[in-house]
């Protein structure tokens, strides 16, 4: 009998969580990229969660105890990053804006994962005409320019109104529609692969129902690549939101802070030497997208054993293949 795998291969639960397990496996440049990505993403999440505590003013606040802030004030002690054309505090809107971005990401990603994975599972498992129809629709959506589709949906959903939740939902749902085909395609491809595996057939042979096979055997085995698309989609969601805001389909400044909208309003400032209204929201978008993309790309490389770098050159500490053999040797 060959010796069983060492008990140490069962790592504790926390070490098997996707991102953490990836971090533990990583090394060198790959690890650096992942850490930079995680730090940027972590900062973004913290800012969003602690916005009320961090922001010196409200996102729609125009006057403090000493009267109005004044328009396009340069950075100063009261307004660390200056004020905008409309007289808002740039830093406050920057911090509150992360909240809007996070909400849009969460709503968009959750909705598109739920719908996309469910459709992909059904489409891949049953096949036939339903599969063909769903794939054609998904391809058709792929063919649309995503921003155009988002604009159309934003108009349909919010009807031009832009309250905070109306704006967030409009942005999130329009992004959802663009992302569903991605999740559908990825899940469907995995499901088709898993469906022909022997363990699925063995479930069929013992008489398991379709629902049981789909949920217990197929679904859990076909979600491996989702964390990766999730992070990449999150960064795309931010860009779409900012694009919508920049084009004027975003959220009114009194309803919520939104980076794309601020950038739009800052266009005119740049030529008049007012740099702080454009640079800071722009940098925020770039850093968040960079952080999320770095996490996504690193996860992609680390999940693939062929791309993953490992420490080379070390000698084995002990004979991992056969502990019994090693002890024999030691006693000999």
């Amino acid at each position: 009998m060959t010796t069983p795998a060492p008990a140490s291969s069962r790592r504790p639960l926390w070490a098997r969580v996707p991102v953490i397990s990836h971090l533990r496996q990583s090394i060198g440049l790959q690890r650096g990229m992942l850490i930079v990505g995680l730090v940027l993403t972590g900062l973004f999440l913290l800012t969003a969660l602690l916005a009320p505590a961090l922001a010196p003013y409200g996102f729609a606040q125009l006057r403090g105890p000493d009267g109005a802030f004044g328009a396009t004030q340069p950075p100063s002690a009261e307004h660390l990053l200056g004020t905008t054309q409309g007289g808002y505090d740039v830093l406050s809107r920057l911090i509150w804006g992360s909240r809007t971005a996070l909400l849009v990401i969460v709503v968009a990603v959750v909705a598109s994962i739920l719908i996309g994975v469910a459709l992909g599972l059904i489409s891949g498992y049953f096949g036939g005409w339903l599969d063909r129809v769903l794939v054609v629709i998904a391809d058709a959506i792929y063919a649309f320019p995503s921003l155009l589709l988002a604009i159309v949906l934003a108009i349909v959903i919010s009807g031009g109104q832009s309250s905070m939740w109306g704006g967030i939902l409009a942005a999130a749902l329009s992004i959802t529609v663009i992302f569903i085909p991605q999740y559908l395609r990825v899940t469907r491809a995995e499901v088709i692969r898993i469906k022909s595996e022997a363990f699925v057939e063995s479930a069929r042979v013992v008489g398991a129902s379709h629902a049981r096979i789909m949920i217990r055997h197929v679904l859990r085995n076909s979600t491996r690549t989702l964390p990766l698309i999730l992070t990449l989609n999150a960064s795309e969601a931010i860009l779409t939101l900012a694009g919508l805001g920049f084009l004027g389909f975003g959220i009114e400044p009194t309803a919520a802070a939104e980076w794309g909208y601020d950038l739009n309003k800052a266009v005119a400032d740049v030529s008049s030497g007012v740099w702080w209204t454009a640079v800071f929201p722009g940098t925020a978008i770039v850093l968040v997208v960079l952080g999320l993309t770095l996490v996504g790309e690193s996860l992609n490389d680390l999940s693939d054993p062929r791309l993953r770098k490992r420490a080379v050159g070390a000698e084995p500490v002990e004979d991992l293949l056969d502990p019994a053999h090693a002890t024999q040797e030691a006693s000999a």
């Binding site: 595996e197 363990f199 057939e201 063995s202 479930a203 013992v206 008489g207 055997h217």
Partner: peptide
């Protein structure tokens, strides 16, 4: 490949008993 990699051996062996 004939075992679901996410289930323990006991769960896999119990599958026919549970399904039926």
């Amino acid at each position: 490949t004939s075992f679901n990699p996410l289930l323990t051996i006991a769960q896999c062996v119990a599958e026919p008993l549970v399904v039926n």
